[in-house]
Design a protein around this nucleic acid. Structure first.
Length: 515
RNA sequence: GGCCCGUUCGUCUAAGGGCUAGGACACCACCCUUUCACGGUGGUGAUACGGGUUCGAAUCCCGUACGGGCUACCA
């Protein structure tokens, strides 16, 4: 039997994947999809999914963001096996708490000649960018062509370097080799090559002793035994730095397999929070309030998406199983997901399609589960639900008309509260004394009815209309307005059935006096 | 500018050298329905362009164009 090289590697090592967010704000679509693909891959292969908080940039730290990320994962049903909150044997899971472990690796790199110390001030760096800026090269980099013109342990004498190091103001930079080709196998894109001459000497350890992403991701992926490193495409161009670090530090043979997911695009470019407010759709999983500005950004949860639908639509944004199936449960996704079938091209987010997914989920979702979600919504809006049995019947009757959870409020309020306003414009033009008499008589007839079922009511309605010589069709709309208040809702006799005899008659009598 | 990644209906995508390029969302029409929806039937609509390779190309190769990402002591 032929085994793809990837499958061979899969079998050799326990699958461990990670999601590594920085706690800087709301968790958006792209982030959740990265979580999802990681999670699905881990579960499919019986592996571990862990969350590592990348909080090495203290200036960008936002209080509450970390907690919020875990809340989002919980709502999505994508709980990690290991994390700050879930524990595990590879902690701490917050990079700021791992600070002390990075320095030795940076020093090792310097010792081996793969990195060096640099002392340039921000002003000097800025000056360098100005001085070397040309038409052909609008953004000069700190690279092999420039580094010998800067202040670092390569250009300074040993004594000078020693003195600078004692001052403590320095960074460690990787010494990118010139003229080498770095290549690696991306599980989605195949082999990718880079010319190391074109990559700059990235900072590995910052002046405050914190690692940058580049060092931290490699060290932690190694220490946490990550088998597959999946992340967004925005990381692809820095991959050669990470590959080289693996080579220098832990050996290419121990490196995880890589996959770079395509970006989720907005109407123009990478999807942003701005796109959401501009075009009127959520981009965050859950409501996010910026602690500084107090600005609230609406989330998919609060908009009224079902978590299953949210995950479903995200999964299909860049992946499919090769069949025409579009609605997948989480379990089905775990079973059918494969990295190799993830697209390489970016996908534009289509809110209309997202709405369709949620609508489909609401239609298929068991009534009991829906009612568990809907009941609190109704109560928040001042609608008292007398018994769950009635609620279930109501939900069954109206769910085809609901795209979002909150739609149930509008679609079912009249079952729990009699209307306090009526769409008179819909009735008045064709209203006349004969119709008034019809409804007065109808109320009387209803009072005498013994089997309160929609078919019986409809027959009674049509019979009386026949006696009065009025077309039943002309009477149905007024009847609806009496019961509902407006031109919407399920078939009117079904409404009457659920409303019950007393309530139906009382609504007719009240409305007749107003029309 | 440089490097990297990408390109099939408006959008998400199927088709891994061989059917009339298939499906879904959206849109349009009709049917159902004397409310609003759901639903049903049908329709409009795509292989970016130019060269190769081949009996045969959406598919493989090259070039061009276009889109995106990166180009920080941010991730």
């Amino acid at each position: 039997m032929y085994l793809h090289p990837l499958s061979l590697q899969l079998m050799s090592k326990r699958v461990r994947v990670r999601f590594a967010p920085s706690p800087t704000g709301g968790l958006h679509l792209g982030g959740v999809r990265t979580v999802l693909y990681n999670y699905l891959f881990a579960k499919k292969h019986g592996g571990d999914f862990l969350v590592r908080i990348e909080d090495t940039d203290q200036s960008r730290y936002v209080p509450g963001a970390e907690e919020y990320i875990f809340d989002c994962l919980k709502w999505c049903g994508l709980d990690p096996d290991e994390s700050v909150q879930h524990g595990g044997n590879y902690g701490p899971y917050r990079q700021s708490e791992r600070k002390s472990s990075y320095r030795q690796y940076a020093e090792q790199l310097v010792k081996d000649g793969h990195a060096y110390y640099a002392f340039d001030t921000p002003e000097e760096l800025e000056k360098m960018r100005q001085d070397f800026r040309t038409e052909q090269n609008p953004s000069p980099q700190y690279d092999h062509t420039i580094r010998m013109k800067m202040r670092n342990s390569l250009t300074l004498t040993a004594d000078e370097t020693e003195k600078m190091l004692r001052d403590g103001k320095f960074v460690t930079r990787i010494k990118m080799p010139a003229g080498e080709t770095v290549s690696f196998m991306d599980m989605i894109r195949g082999e990718v090559h880079f010319d190391t001459s074109l990559v700059d000497d990235k900072v590995l350890l910052k002046a405050d002793g914190m690692p940058t992403y580049h060092l931290a991701v490699v060290v932690d992926d190694h220490l946490m035994q990550i088998s597959h490193a999946f992340r967004g495409e925005e990381w692809l161009s820095s991959a050669p730095v990470h590959i080289l670090l693996w080579k220098y530090l832990f050996g290419l043979g121990n490196m995880p397999q890589w996959a770079h997911f395509p970006l989720i695009l907005g109407p123009n470019g990478k999807l942003s929070k701005r796109d959401g407010s501009k075009y009127g759709f959520p981009v965050f999983a859950m409501n996010w309030t910026d602690p500084k500005s107090g600005e609230l950004t609406e989330g998919f949860k609060e908009k009224g998406f079902l978590p299953g639908a949210f995950i479903n639509l995200l999964a299909l944004l860049g992946w499919n199983d090769g069949t025409e199936q579009e609605i997948f449960s989480k379990e089905e996704l775990i079973e059918k997901f494969s990295i190799e079938r993830v697209h390489s091209g970016g996908a534009k987010f289509d809110y209309e399609k997202a709405k369709w997914f949620n609508h489909e989920w609401i239609k298929r979702w068991p009534v009991r589960d829906l009612s568990y979600q809907v009941k609190p919504l109704l109560e928040e809006n001042g609608l008292w639900v007398p018994d769950d049995n009635l609620l279930n019947k109501v939900i069954e009757l109206v769910k085809d008309r609901c795209t979002f959870l909150p739609d149930f409020i509008q679609q079912s309020s009249f079952f729990f509260k009699s209307p306090d306003s009526w769409d008179l414009d819909a009735v008045k033009p064709n209203w006349n004394p004969d119709k008034r008499i019809f409804f007065e008589n109808f109320a009387t007839r209803l009072a005498a009815i013994s089997t309160w079922e929609s078919v019986t009511l409809e027959n009674e309605f049509k019979n009386l209309a026949g006696e009065k010589n009025i077309k039943p069709g002309e009477l149905q709309l007024p009847f609806r307005i009496m019961l509902v208040g407006g031109k919407f809702g399920p078939p009117v006799f079904h409404i009457a059935e659920l409303l019950g005899k007393e309530e139906t008659i009382s609504r007719i009598e009240k409305a007749v006096s107003l029309f």
